[in-house]
Write a protein that binds this DNA or RNA. Structure first.
Lengths: 130, 130
DNA sequence: CTGTATCCCCAGAGATACTG
DNA sequence: CAGTATCTCTGGGGATACAG
């Protein structure tokens, strides 16, 4: 029997993978996937350890790729909210099998996830019933 | 209705993505996915433009991650063959939805694939009936 | 609060020559 | 044939200070 991977070429990934592989990108996407909308400093705190420059750079790239969207409110002090686009949400869906595979490989200790992404309560990997 | 991505945390990817995002890694995996077993210089030719050092580095990393395997034959001149491990093949399977998503996003011009990965005849993206 | 503006560092990647 | 040994360069990423 023929598997999907027998016919597939991984080349289309070349473009997007350089984006989603950037240091914090996946984490940011994951976080936004769980929180719906977040402000700049919220993301900084959750990530814990990222510099404002790195965060700005990453957010801009994700935005340029159409994975997240930025909404600025003309207030003082300024308020800006980030959220996933529809495309970004579809990415999350498309990436599920890959995550499952990675979890299986690593034998997924839930605490590792906690340590890596900084989720304390909200991280799905720490919930029951998986 | 709840989607898979509502519950999933992308953190487990952190480890593997730094490997498979390395410049040539995905391409090599894809190529090995299509050719079963290949020798060092064969890979170099197919990729076209990679330096021996970069290829060596990448192959070693992929091997260390258990995605490909190396078989050396004690002959003169030496012969070494690379192939995907079972884990590597499973990666190919797991990555299919992501590739489909990327193709859809990019509106997949088949020639782009050709240009990127160097497949001339063998590239599935150039076949009919997709 | 939400970012810029600078400066610095180092690992990834290329080019090239050479070896068992 | 299948790499190794060097050298170099670029840019991603961190730290820090400052601005609108």
């Amino acid at each position: 029997m023929e598997k999907d991977s027998d016919r597939i070429c991984l080349c289309p990934l070349e473009g997007i993978i350089t984006t989603i592989a950037k240091k914090w990108a996946i984490l940011i996407i994951s976080i936004l996937g769980h929180h719906e909308r977040l402000r700049f400093n919220d993301i900084m705190e959750i990530l814990g350890g990222i510099s404002p420059k790195s965060l700005t750079d990453t957010l801009k790239e994700l935005q340029r790729e159409g994975l997240i969207q930025r909404e600025a409110f003309p207030e003082i002090p300024p308020r800006v909210e980030y959220s996933l686009t529809e495309d970004g949400r579809q990415l999350c869906e498309a990436i599920v099998p890959l995550v499952r595979w990675a979890e299986k490989r690593d034998n997924l200790p839930a605490k590792t996830c906690h340590a890596t992404c900084g989720f304390s309560e909200g991280c799905p990997s720490r919930r029951e019933g998986r």
